[in-house]
Amino acid sequence: MKPAVHHYTTDVLDWRPFVTPVKLEEATPAQREALKITPANKKISDYVLVLAHDPESLLHRSPLFNAIMYGRDGLDRGGRELGAIGSSIVNRCVYCIAVHARHYNQATKTTAVVEEIFAKELDATLPDREQSIFDFSSKLSAFPPAASADDVARLRDKGLTPLETLDLILSAAIFGWANRLMHTLGEPIPAG
């Protein structure tokens, strides 16, 4: 059995479940309906097949996740990904971080922000705008939520509109959800 990955990486990882995934050939009609709306991969991932144990939640959370992360106007793609990374660092979801650090680097064509966060986690020193986004996201993701009026004021000072701030709240919040599934129902392993 491959050892689990516990360090931060932007490598493509696989995910090994702690509970038995639903078997596609045994899926109920409700499970089949919920599985249809996930990305049109030929092979459905073990992660999605684990979530198919609760088809009502899966049916609505998948489009909710997509609407929050890939909506057209409002906060740019890099900002949403940075919100996702802030939450995922707080909750230490190594798999989530790998995926969304990759997305962040692709969207922004940079690697320095991700490298700094990997090295210093919540103590990372970032450019002003990125710092305000990362700090807001990680503080909102803390238990209990610890973002303050000052953190919101800093976002405004760095040029975020109210709509963009709402998008950031949503991105951090939906990742608190994703982290609590991915990091607790299984673990990341090297791909291949």
Binding site: S57, P145, A147, V152, A153, P162, L166, I169, W177, R180
Partner: peptide, 29 residues
């Protein structure tokens, strides 16, 4: 199946609490 149902419930509650917490900060600002 109940383990997955429980995870979805607890995770949703964290999402909802943070959404309303963020909105309160915006409202106050």
């Amino acid at each position: 199946a109940d383990i997955v149902r429980l995870a979805e419930l607890a995770a949703f509650l964290g999402y909802q609490a943070r959404l309303i917490s963020g909105l309160r900060l915006m409202e106050a600002a």
